[in-house]
Write a protein that binds this DNA or RNA. Structure first.
Lengths: 249, 249
DNA sequence: GATCTCAATATGTGATCATAAAATGCCGGC
DNA sequence: GCCGGCATTTTATGATCACATATTGAGATC
């Protein structure tokens, strides 16, 4: 709302946001939205208004339109009847579908990554996992989500496939909002036990065990999500979306 | 170029295209582009100009922008350095990646579909396959592509998963242009032999055999594509893109 | 005759306008 | 007090404008 005009202003050295970074606006918006989806800025089913988002991000509706289109194409958002968009509401059946595909794709990526795994990668993964454990200790929900995601994707990036990674990212964006909402329920346990087994298997070069660990981790997450969904149904939690995440643009 | 203004004209009953179909324009554009990608309207690497496409489709650039965004998000198009888009050029390595994911995803979908397969579905598949065989007989390239695609997707649709199908569609859109270009090479053989085995396995209810058939079909296609790519390299064929497909809008 | 330079053009990108439809809220009636 | 119909507002969507950059073409120089 504060600075609606960003680029076309004639003043040469008053960059609205950070520095002289001349990057594309929609790129920035995209990363903001993706992070927001994964970290609980939007609830499942919450309709996102184009203009309000644009106002909140301090741009014209145009870049937001482009980003929302892409997110819809990726399945991260669904269009409502009137053309608005919202994060998908995942019922038990769709969640089951989604996590079956996760098992196939991420299991495959993990196995391939294990083939190319270097000691440096393993060390990096251990560092990330340490931060994840610390976040769990502190009950830092956003930290748990971020570090868990970082752990998985640093592993998957090791598979050296430009094809499978975007698909996995699309899947994560689809269940991101539901995942965050579930973590708000106190009874939702977070289990990072599989990560240790995965790291061990990586060190031993046991590709099958790595795949097994990932699949087991995915199954555990699925069970936890299903149980929370079952006990809570689709009743919207009294928690508000973490809109404060959109203040530091 | 002929009628740039479509909706905002005050004349009430002069629909630029077909009928009073009040459907969204970008939806129409999207289906046109998807079909075009699968049927050889665009060559791999051929840059698509936003304004020229819009002119060819008789709309303003806006709906085309939205569609191109979505296709980029789906991996069906890649952005060049200056922000233009083009169908991806698939090198042997990326093609190998792509088809590995195809095996995993489509094999899974086929197995799931086999579980729910009804006699009606099998009959439908046989009808499609008959049309495919006829198209092969007539050396009708576009027919081959269309009916083969229809065969695979009618099977996959039987898996009743709303998650896996869009992913498979994204993969097909990625290799569509390369696939068409390869079929222009006379030495490219088309093999629909696996389809018969798949149908037999469906009738017997042998899910594993169905999956095996699909995987074998994918492997065969991959080998054929790799061999054509190998013998032809990336040398652009003298064939022009089938731009005439864009005349019947 | 080939190459370098500069102008003309084309292109993507963000902003704004126009419009129709849908959601919202308000008010009167029952 | 509750519900239905109308006016207001909000919404997405297509079109157009403005601008900066990249590409292209021709013309002049070596």
């Amino acid at each position: 709302m504060q600075n609606a005009k960003a680029t076309s202003t004639p003043d040469p050295d008053t960059p609205p946001e950070k520095k002289g970074e001349r990057r594309q606006v929609h790129e920035h918006v995209l990363s903001r939205m993706r992070r927001g989806l994964m970290i609980g800025a939007f609830l499942p089913g919450q309709v996102l208004s184009l203009r309000k988002l644009a106002a909140g991000l301090g741009t014209s509706p145009m870049p937001v339109r482009e980003v929302l289109s892409r997110l819809v194409a990726a399945g991260a958002l669904e269009e409502t009847a009137n053309g608005s968009v919202a994060p998908p509401r995942l019922g038990p059946d769709k969640l089951e579908d989604l996590f079956s595909v996760r098992e196939a794709l991420e299991g495959m990526a993990a196995e391939m990554a294990a083939r190319y795994a270097t000691p440096a990668l393993i060390k990096e993964l251990e560092a990330i996992n340490a931060k994840l454990l610390a976040a769990i200790e502190k009950r830092d929900i956003a930290g748990c989500l971020s570090f868990n995601q970082e752990f998985h994707f640093t592993l998957y990036r090791g598979c050296r496939s430009e094809v499978i990674l975007p698909l996995i990212e699309a899947l994560w964006l689809q269940f991101g909002p539901t995942m965050y909402m579930s973590l708000l329920v106190p009874s939702m346990p977070w289990n990072a036990a599989d990560h240790g087994a995965i790291l061990d298997a990586l060190k031993k070069g046991d590709r099958t065990a790595v795949k097994r660990g990932i699949v087991h981790d995915i199954r555990t997450t699925k069970r936890a999500l299903l149980s929370v969904l079952g006990e809570n149904g689709m009743a919207d939690l009294p928690f508000a979306a973490r809109s404060e995440l959109f203040s530091d643009f």
